[in-house]
Structures are given as C-alpha cells and as structure tokens.
Design a protein around this nucleic acid. Structure first.
Lengths: 121, 121
DNA sequence: CAAACATATGAATAGTTGTTCAGATATTAT
DNA sequence: ATAATATCTGAACAACTATTCATATGTTTG
C-alpha cells in the first residue's frame, strides 16, 4: 500500500453524506439573511428587553414608566430601547419632553405568542 | 403643610404615571417566565444556530453533515446543538454511531416564519 | 435666555458567549 | 478486547453585551 493510497483512504473515512450536504447547501439561506434573523432574535433574547416588550404589549409607556415597571435605571432602559428601535420592534411618539414607546407592529406580538407557547408547554 | 405631605410632593416631581405603572406591573410576567422566554430567543439569536435550524428545516442531518453544510468544526456544531437541545428546539435519533438531528416541533418553523416576515419586509 | 426636566449617548467595566483544542464517551467492527 | 469512528465535553481565550456613571441633547417653563 503506497503512501498516497493511505492518504486517500483516510480522507474517505468520514461520516459525511455528500448528496444530502450538497442538496441542503444549495437551498441554504444567505449569510446576510442568517445574520439579520439572528440579530432579530438576539434583540428578543434578553430578560430586560423581554420585559420591556411585554410591558409595551399592554400599553404605550414613556421611558420613565418603563424604568419604574421593570426596576432599572432610565439610562439602561434607554440603551435597550435603542436596540429595539434598530430592530424595528418598537416605535415612539413625542409629547412635549416625554417619549411614548409602543410596539412597532403585530409581528412582535405574534413572535411573543409563539415563544410563549413553546416555553409554557 | 406637614412634613409627610412635602415628601409626597417631592416624589410626585417625576415623569412617572403612577397609575399606568401600577396597572402594568400587576399584569407583568414573572421573572422566571421572562428569563425562559429570553433564553428561548437567545438560542435562536446566533448566526450559526440560525443556519443549523434552517438546514434542519429541510431534512434531518447528522452532526458531521451539519458541520459540512455550515462550514464549521464538528465540535463547534456539537456545542451549539446541545444548546438547541436544551431549549427543545431540536431532537435526535441514533443510528449506530451516527446521531441524526431534526427540528423538535412545528413551533420552530413558525417562529422562523414570523422572524423572516419581520426581517424581509 | 436660563433653569428644569426627560431622554439619549459615550466610555468603562463586569459578565456572558462562541469557537478551538485536547481529551473523553459511546458504538461498531475486527 | 482493541481499534476505529462519531459525537460529546471541559477548559481557555477572544469577542461581544448590559449596566452604570457622567455628560450631552432637546424641550418646556418662567
């Protein structure tokens, strides 16, 4: 047995199902899409932000109220709201000095709904 | 004006809408529930895991295939699969030495669906 | 305009997370 | 039993993230 043959043999010793891998790879989602999706879920994947969104599911609230509801500094809340804003999960309207935040659309509620179902089953 | 009244007054100097805060707090979700939900979304909030789940949406695959599909070491994939397993997002069956992973249930697909809608709109 | 207030932001820091590497299990074949 | 293979696991390290603190911005009121 030559040295080359040995190497080839070693490479073939693998559990990969080439056909499956090829097929799945072709229908795989783009790197960018995967990242966007991950970022969306990442935005939902934090206890503080879950609480913020849950509170906003009930009614629109200002930063100050949100801070009081979840028991965190207004600064911390503001930072997190920015993140949620960038993911278009919340929006806000200004009334004088006060900014009232609310959920951006129905997607968030549905995502939460699905999440709840999964967690509480 | 008594001393007590003074203190109350001072506390009122704030943007907090006490009534709203009280109401929302009462209907607030438990700390534990918030954490579970956050953990679920956190599990979905990573590019590698998004790819893994997307691949598994197409068909069941072994660790080795998954590693080949997304171009990462088997060890890294295994670590991530464990996380997904703990969140009950994937399950597996053994066939000899090989473990075939697949999505745990329909929740994941629906969550992904909702996520996609949000990201690609 | 200046003071007061609600919110936002930047920097710093502590805590968390993903990958790699080395080694451990578990299953099958010899 | 031993060797080979597929997967798992623990430790370590780099990269990322959430909160805090100090300060800035923007809006109203006097």
């Amino acid at each position: 047995m030559t040295r080359e043959r040995e190497i080839v043999d070693r490479c073939e010793v693998s559990c990969i199902h080439e056909d499956k891998v090829k097929e799945v790879r072709q229908r795989m989602l783009e790197e960018e899409a995967a990242q966007s999706l991950a970022q969306l879920f990442k935005a939902l994947g934090d206890t503080t932000r879950v609480k913020l969104l849950f509170a906003l599911m009930q009614q629109e609230l200002c930063v100050c109220d949100l801070a009081a509801v979840i028991g965190l500094s207004e600064s911390a809340v503001s930072h997190q709201l920015r993140l949620l804003r960038h993911q278009k999960l919340v929006r806000f309207r200004r009334e004088g000095k006060v900014l009232y935040y609310s959920l951006a659309d129905k997607h968030v509620e549905r995502l939460f709904g699905q999440g709840f179902e999964h967690v509480t089953e």
